[in-house]
Every structure is written in C-alpha cells, then in structure tokens.
Design a binder for these strands. Structure first.
Lengths: 152, 152
DNA sequence: GTAAACTAGTCAACGTGATTGACGAAAAGG
DNA sequence: CCTTTTCGTCAATCACGTTGACTAGTTTAC
C-alpha cells in the first residue's frame, strides 16, 4: 500500500527529469542559456507573437513581470519587439529565428524523450498513464504559468 | 499518437493539483500561511530536527539560504532553534508542535487525495502509474529541492 | 467633435529567496 | 599547542516577482 505523499513526488520527479533532459539537450544543441522559465515563456509567445499584456495573462504574472521576461529574452536573442501598426499602444513580441529554433528542437526532444518512456514501459502503458493523468487533471492542463506558481 | 510535449505538462499538472489541494486543505485546517516551499522545508527538517547546514544540503541550497528559510519558519512558529549542547558551533532546528501538526495533517491529506485518484481510476491503475513513474525516475526521487530547482 | 474612460506599456520602489565571500567561534588532528 | 576544518551568520548582490504611478493611444458617450 503506497503512501499518499509518494505520488506527488513521483509526478514531480517525472516532470523534472523531462525538463532537465530537455535543457541538457538544448544546451548541447546551441542553446545553453535557455532556462526552464524561459522555455515556458517562449512557448507562450508562440509562433504568432503576442503582446506583453497577453503574455502576462498566459504565464499568470503581471504585465510588468512579463515585460521584464521579454527584455531578458530579447537580450538573449530569442524574441524581438515591434510596434503594432494598427494600434499605437501595442507592442508585438515575436520569436526570432533563433527563438523558433528553440521551439522546434524542444518539440523534437520531447518526442524523443517520450519514445524512451515507450521503450521502457511499452506503448500502451505510457498512453494509459497519459489517459489517467488527463482524467485527473482539472481543465486542460495547458497552463503555462508553472514558473510563477511555485513561489506563491 | 500523443505529442511528446504533453506528457511533462500532464505530470506537472498532476503534481500541481496535489500541492494546490494540499494547501487549500491546510489553509482550512488552521495553516493558511504554509507555502509549497515551506512545506518542503518542514518535510526536510523532519521529526528529528536538523542543523541549518544539513537542511541546506537536503534542500539543495546554500547553508545561508537554508538559514533564511529557518528564520521565516521560526517567525511563523513552525520551527525553533536551540543550541546543540554537545557542540557549541551547531544550532538545532526542531519542529514546534505546530510544525509537527502541519506534517501530520499533510500526510493525512495526501492519503486522502490519493484515495480520490483510486476512486476515479481504480486501485491497480494508480499503482501501475506509480510503478511506471518509479521505473522512469532516476535515483529514488526523494529529493526535496523542488523549490530551488525551477529558477536555475 | 471633444471630453471622459478605458487599455497598453513602462518606470520606480520594493519584497522574497537565492547566491558568493568573509568572518568569528568551536571542534578536531597533528 | 597550534593549525585546519566545520558551523553559523553577516553583508552585498542578483534574479524575478509584486504594486502603484504615469504616459500615450484608443474607444465611448454626450
């Protein structure tokens, strides 16, 4: 009979091993300075670009915090800012080619990592695991505000 | 065919729902100011007490950071500091009765939350999930340095 | 058509929780 | 003994979040 506290630790350890291996791989593939929080932010920027305010909403932080994140990502060359031609208040945050490269590589690395789980556990055990989690996780589970969440 | 990026998000969302519900319950049961990071620290202090340096090692942070955490927990009444009678350099950090209460309640709440998973998924599906995660997680997965990890 | 209200982004001040470096006191080892 | 190591803490700094105030641009209402 498993202790209740074990399950959340296992979930976190699994998540963590994914993220750790992702970033080790990214570092080897020319992106040594992407940190987990930056990856989430880049994902939230997405291929279509976003305004700082909307980015803050997606990440669950204030627009000011989102603006600072954009500044850091800009300094690292992953995003760029441009004025919105149709609305003088807005600034568009868009991925640079380097930013797109991170997302593309991340998707490939995640696929490969999942494949490793399939090799060890078998395909149906992995998809049962996914199904079980989908059933237990409220909403869609697509929230990207992981970085801001822990400290609160 | 699931996308690879979905699995880590599901793992995190599962972990997160555990922690969120734990803290909502703790808040109702008289511990409104326990934050996730504090819970990990209290767990690392444990019923036997610990020195600040060892606490830092368990949490994966510097001894100075651990000292500050102890200070915050002390101010909230969850731990107390005492001189080690046998070694003048050491200070013993011990849980107060209130700190023990948090750990006791947390264990009960975790058990109840796991029980909810069993109600929805069935006992063997949950234990298979745990088994799968145990197989994929390197080491023991008992590391408590979750709080410090994300920012790095 | 203009005044008011709202929205978007940024600046400044500050809080929290981490870091490293330096230091004094207490143990341990030759 | 006296040196080396260990332990805890102080101080300065950094990363990253917060709230509040402010400017500029857009929309709404009269």
């Amino acid at each position: 009979m498993a202790e209740g506290y074990e399950l959340p630790l296992l979930l976190f350890a699994g998540f963590r091993s994914f993220i750790d291996e992702l970033h080790a791989e990214l570092a080897e593939q020319g992106h040594p300075d992407v940190r987990p929080a930056y990856g989430f932010a880049l994902q939230a920027v997405g291929r279509d670009g976003v305004t700082p305010g909307e980015l803050g909403r997606r990440l669950g932080v204030s627009k000011q915090a989102a603006g600072k994140t954009v500044e850091r990502l800009e300094r690292l060359g992953y995003v760029e800012r441009a004025d919105d031609p149709g609305d003088g208040r807005r600034k568009l945050v868009r991925l640079t080619p380097r930013g797109v490269d991170v997302l593309t590589r991340s998707a490939m690395i995640f696929d490969r990592l999942r494949e490793r789980w399939v090799e060890t556990l078998g395909a149906e055990r992995v998809s049962d695991l996914e199904g079980a989690l989908r059933a237990m996780v409220p909403g869609n589970g697509w929230r990207l505000d992981a970085a801001s969440w822990f400290g609160s």
